[in-house]
Structures are given as C-alpha cells and as structure tokens.
Design a protein around this nucleic acid. Structure first.
Lengths: 343, 343
DNA sequence: ATCTATGATGTAAGCGCTTACATTTTATCA
DNA sequence: TGATAAAATGTAAGCGCTTACATCATAGAT
C-alpha cells in the first residue's frame, strides 16, 4: 500500500508511457495499441489507481452528473421514481446527485445552487412551481431542466408527468357518480406543492359543476403521514358528520382515514367512501383494498433519465412535454352513498 | 446573461481585487476587510457567480462529499435512514452521494469505485459483508467506513446498527412463549444480505434450543414485496398446513402473508400468528395491527452522519461500534396457538 | 528507395480554484 | 515620530487530469 494515492503520472511512469496515453487508454481505448493497453491496465491494477474525478471534470468540463431534488425521499412514489432514474442514469455512466427540499421552495433554490456548484449537467425537479432564482440559474448554466410529476402543455420547460387537475377531477367524478353529495378532502400541505393544489382544484371544479359545494372546513391540510390522516379524519367527521366521501391526498393519508373510520365504527364503503392517490405497492395486499389513482412513478423516472441523456449526448435543446396517463383503480373503499341514520 | 459562466477571476476583476482575496472572502470571511467583502459579494451577485466545485476540490483536496450505498432506496427503512443521514450531512455542509447495490456485492464494489472516483471522504454501507475489493479500496484511500444496520463488537470497521441475530431470537422467543411449535419463515433473499442471514440464524438457534425443528421447506426466500409475501404464504400453507406461526423478513412480506391468510380463511391470530420486521410507519394505522420489531432507522442515519463528520473534521481514526436497541412491538397478529381442526 | 497518408505516442498548456509565501497596509507602542 | 507587530492583500505555483498539436513510426503507393 502506497503512502499516497497513485496518479495518472504514476501509472504512466510505471507503464513507461506518457500521461496522454494512459488517459487515452481510459477514455478512448481504440486509439491505443493493444500491447500498451495491457501494460497500462496492469499498471493500474498493481498500483490500485482510481481516477480523480474532480481533476477529470476540471480538465474535460464534463462531470457526468445529474441532479434531482425531491420534496422528500421518504415517500414511496418519490423513492420509486428516483430508483428508476438512478438505475438508468448509472447504466449510461452518469451519477445522480440527490437532494431534498422538504416541500420548501427556498430550500429547493439552495439545493439547486449547491448542485450547480457540483457541476450537474441536467436537473430534475418535482412540480413546475419553483423559486425564480432556480430558473435564472438554469438559464445561466444552460442545462436541461425536467419538471416531473406535472404536465403542462404550455410549459417553458420540459415536463414528464401527470395532469394533476384532471386526476383530481376524475376521482371526484367517480364519487359523484356513486351519488355522494357531502365531500371532505384530506390533502397534503398545499404550500409549495403545486401538484396537491392542482388536484384540489380539479376536485373543486368538478364538484362545482355538479352543484356540490366544498367549504374551507371540509378541506384539511396535513403532513403526509398515516397518523396525521387519522387525526384529520377524526376532525372532519366531528365537524362534518354528514360527510360520505373523503378524498385523500395520497394512499398513506387514506390508510390513516380508514383507521379513523374503523375507530368511529363507520363501515367502508357502506357508511363512507375513501380514496387515496398513488397506488403504492403495499395497498394491493391490505384489506379493505383502497380505491386510488395510480401514479406512473417508475415510468417517470426511466423516461426522465432517457430524455436527459439524449439531451446531453445529442446536444439536443428540444423541450419535451410528456403526459403520462393515470388510471382510477376502483377497489373496495368506494361505493354508493347510503344515507346513515343520524341523531 | 454572459456567454460564459463567470469564474473567480471574473469576480476578482470586477471587484478590483485578486483571486486570492475572493477565495478568502468565500472560505474564510474573517480574513477579509468588511468593505472588500461587500464589494466582492456585489460582484458575485451581479455576475451570478457560482463556484466550480471540481476546481475547488482539486485545489483544496476536499470534496465535502460522503458516499452511501444501500441495497435499494425503495424500501422505507433505507429511505428513512438516508433521509436523516442526508439531512444532517447537508446541515454540516456535506453532500451525500447515494448509490444502490440491488443486494449484489459485486455491484456494491463497482459503486464503491465510482464513489471513490468522485472523491468521497467517508463511506456508508449496509451490513458488514462486503467484497474484499471494497475493504482494499477503503484502506488505500484511508477514508472512514461505517457499516450500518449491523452490530458486531469485534468488527474491524465502525458499525452502527442492531444485533440482527438477537432480534431474530427475540421474535422466536415471543412466539415460543405463545406455545407455537410449528414455524414457517418467509425471509428476504439471503444471498448478499447478512442481516437477513443473521436474523434467520437467531430464529433457528432459539427454536433449536426449544426442541423445535425448522425444515428447509419451512424457510422461504423471496423478494421484499407484498405480492411475493402473499405467494410465499400460500406455498408455505400448502406444504406445511400445520404451521401456526410465520415469521416474516419485513413488514411488507408480513402484510402479504396476512393477505394470503385472509384468502385462505385463516383468522389471525386465532389460527395463525404472523410477525413482521421494521415497524414501518404505515402499519400503525392498518388492521389487524402487525406485531413487529422496530428498526431505529432514523437514529441510525443521524448517528452515522454525526460520527462521520466528527471523524473527518476531528481527523479522528477511532472506530465506533454502536448497538442500537430494538423493541418487540406486540400488536394484534400474534397470539396463543390454538389447534385447528384438520382433515 | 522516396514520398505520403495514417496511426500511435508524446509534449505541454491549461481547466478554476486554493494556499504558502511575499508584500503592503494598518495598528500599536515606546 | 519611528520601529515593530499584526492584519490584509497579492503573487504564483500547483492540484490531476484532458486534449490540441507536434512528433515519430509504419506501411502502402510510386
């Protein structure tokens, strides 16, 4: 074991060639004679040489690095998307730099700056609502930006995602068809989360079209956690006992609401219907099976990787706006509204 | 907007100082006069200067980067630990480079090489069983390594985690106390997963001590997914209908097993007891509530961050071996074995 | 045998920053 | 006021690589 990490120069000396040849052997092997390649590989092996990424990046102006910022990695849909994004980027020789914004646009901006310092060649953000500084920085650095989990045909930047408003509408439609007239919504925190906002808008719009009102008190915001969903459901049913349909911002909240319904002695879906969002893997095996909207998170991750690589390698400036479909998965937690006897 | 990204030199020229002063202003502000600092900050602002990380890393031999490799990010316990690890590293000015090994030691080695190229100053791996090349590379690069999710007082490297064998034992003990005599185990894939192996060992050992055998056919391996757990449970009950206690490798598998039990018309825990592992947040709000072992993943992440930073900043070579406790959470899926009538 | 095209290798100039050391400015004290 | 220490700033040498360009070797064409 050497006292110092070996450099390209050390490898070159050991193999009796110049650094240029070693560099070529690593990056453009077809330009180096076979016999030398072997000698160099042997030198690398015995010295335990590992390239110095920073030096390489500085000299070549390439980092082969992509940045992504999600609100939190600790949410199955984001981690699924990230898993696929990373897998495909790695396959193509890129490294993913992952950061979290905790649903804060300011925090997101800070992370963007940091990623830019790291030299990312592309950026993935969630949603289309970002700090102005983010857009400025992206412009200046001239790197492709993909907004995922959102679809807007008018967007100035690439987006690969779903039409959140339409999805919200679709859920409301399903419940209205089941003759529900008294709704409650348990949403995630809306601030800094344009997807949740858009879904709520979609829901409101559809209800309004059908002459159904939705008071402020019937829309509860809370963190995405089972316990929070449970508490919200209790609150909702306390203040609005006539509610027969509860639309939740994601599956976790819905599971919490389901738990509360159980505690309140309400049967689902006879007394009350509950919907989730995302169709995370786990809910396929629990009972009652949740009616929800699936989120194509894996496809989103994979497609984002593909687009970015093409953008970078093909030096392609094209903006891509891609809508991924969502499907309403009707299972056991929604049914026809049955009027309950009330005191 | 300039045609080219501004460099330190540009900032220095604009502010009428030398690059050294700008560099100091950024890294050791107290060494630069107030008036100049303001001038420099203004220059940075108007030019939209963003430091070039690679150049900085090359010159300073610091990357402020930590690498972590988990089997998959798409597993609540890992993503939780990563979330906390990242949060605390970010707080301290470090960037986390995250990679996935897909439970393959060879893949893990490849990722280690890649991370080393990126210049990580510390490495976090899951488990203590790694490719020899990983240890060699770590030695050569002289960076601290922390094995998480595992605890071994004899370990040559730092570890922060739980005693998996003990945890397995504890679960078996609980079920033996409930008078179960016919066990089944639905484990994750054992290959490349020393944690799962150790837990299984712990289980086997305790059963053996109590004169209870565990055939190979009673131990099923499958991927960590609800559906896989469900299928495994069906298989287990087909070939070993007398089974009254099923120990699952994690909560997701247990949920799948629970689903299968429902499908088979078995009531839990009257006919059969089922246990999970991890105590992921979601299972607190589902019914029946799962008996499981909690995994201190958040503490693991936070503590790992703390240790690494101390190691790096304090230039401390100390090896830390820290055992985090686990608790058996007895809920509704385990109970006294009741003999079932059988044909 | 000479000339050229082609391929293989070497030379050396940076990439954008940090930092040891040299120099200048400012503060302190006899 | 001048000598001296301390603080602020500048100078310039790399950090470990890539790559344009120069050089050299080889082989084919004449």
């Amino acid at each position: 074991m050497t006292i110092k990490k070996p450099t390209l120069q050390d490898v070159a000396d050991y193999a009796g060639v110049s650094t240029a040849t070693v560099s070529r052997c690593l990056n453009q092997p077809d330009k180096v004679k076979q016999s030398l390649q072997e000698k160099i590989r042997e030198a690398i092996e015995t010295l335990g040489y590992v390239p110095h990424g920073a030096a390489r990046a500085l000299a070549s102006r390439r980092t082969f690095t992509i940045g992504a910022i999600v609100p939190t990695i600790d949410n199955a849909i984001f981690s699924e998307a990230i898993q696929y994004l990373q897998r495909d980027l790695t396959k193509a020789g890129y490294t993913l730099l992952l950061a979290q914004s905790s649903y804060s646009l300011d925090e997101e901006l800070r992370e963007v700056q940091s990623l830019l310092t790291q030299g990312i060649e592309g950026l993935v953000l969630v949603g289309e609502d970002h700090h102005q500084g983010v857009f400025d920085a992206i412009e200046q650095h001239r790197i492709p930006l993909v907004n995922i989990w959102t679809y807007n045909p008018e967007s100035k930047y690439s987006c690969i995602g779903i039409d959140n408003a339409k999805a919200g509408q679709r859920i409301a439609e399903h419940l209205v068809e089941l003759e529900h007239r008294h709704f409650g919504v348990i949403s995630g925190i809306l601030r800094g989360n344009d997807r949740a906002q858009q879904r709520l808008e979609g829901i409101k719009q559809h209800l309004q079209q059908n002459g159904i009102g939705l008071d402020d008190g019937e829309v509860l915001e809370c963190r995405y956690s089972g316990e929070q969903g449970r508490l919200a459901m209790h609150e909702l049913m306390t203040h609005h006992p006539q509610t027969t349909a509860v639309i939740c911002g994601n599956d976790i909240l819905a599971l919490g609401a389901l738990c509360a319904a159980r505690e309140l002695g309400l049967s689902v879906p006879e007394d009350i219907s509950i919907t989730g969002f995302d169709d995370i893997e786990i809910i396929a095996v629990i009972s009652p099976a949740l009616t929800t909207m699936n989120s194509p998170s894996r496809r989103m991750g994979a497609q984002t990787a593909e687009y970015l690589i093409q953008c970078i390698e093909g030096d392609d400036q094209r903006v891509e706006r891609c809508e991924l479909g969502t499907d309403l998965i009707v299972r056991e937690t929604t049914g026809v509204a049955v009027s309950r006897g009330r005191a």
